[in-house]
């Protein structure tokens, strides 16, 4: 390790799953290797190292990215979320993970973290999606076991629940805003 540091290692600071961390990495190390080897988050997998298979998909600043196509150094200052961040604080699987279990969306489980992180980023868009759109959207991650059906069903269920909750939230927010506006107007008059 000490020897490698002489090979242009650099210090990288980032927020990983909500925690501030700092570590060293060689300039040529890609982000997936960095997360696995230097930060110990082995839930992120490496499958092709050319950006095709999607095993290494993580969220960087809210966007799903294939971390084998990023250098570790590019994570400096970033906010990164990996599969280890998904379960709820009480230890239960979150709604997305539960949907994968319910719909048999995984077999060997090697691709699963990639799909989970991709689906998490889709949910963040807050848009309704048809099954066809979901199939297109998840085509950046490959699975050789399931034939995708369970994955698509799980993502569909998760997105529809998230969307419903999101719109309830927006409605609630909206009515609060409306109430506030009303009060403000009343105060003005």
């Amino acid at each position: 390790m000490s020897f490698e540091r002489t090979l242009n290692e650099q210090e990288i600071s980032l927020t990983l799953n909500g925690e501030r961390v700092r570590a060293w990495a060689p300039s040529r190390m890609h982000a997936a290797d960095f997360l696995r080897q230097r930060l110990g988050r082995t839930g992120t997998h490496v499958g092709c190292e050319q950006g095709v298979c999607g095993m290494c998909t993580v969220m960087v600043d809210g966007q799903a990215v294939k971390s084998c196509l990023m250098l570790a150094a590019q994570l400096d200052g970033a906010e990164v979320c990996t599969v280890e961040s998904l379960a709820e604080e009480n230890g239960n699987l979150n709604a997305l993970q539960q949907a994968f279990k319910k719909h048999h969306g995984l077999q060997c489980g090697f691709c699963t973290p990639g799909f989970l992180m991709l689906a998490t980023s889709l949910a963040a868009r807050g848009e309704a999606m048809s099954r066809e759109q979901i199939r297109d959207e998840v085509s950046g991650v490959l699975c050789r076991c399931t034939g995708y059906e369970g994955i698509v069903r799980a993502v569909e269920e998760y997105l529809s629940v998230q969307q419903a909750e999101g719109s309830r939230f927006r409605q609630a927010e909206g009515s609060r805003h409306a109430e506030g506006a009303q009060q403000a107007m009343e105060a003005q008059s």
């Binding site: 990996t82 280890e84 090697f110």
Partner: peptide, 19 residues
Amino acid sequence: VPRTEDERLLRGDGRFTDD
């Protein structure tokens, strides 16, 4: 029956050879 394997694999707690 839901699979027992899923709990660890969904959390990134699988132990593949490179892990």
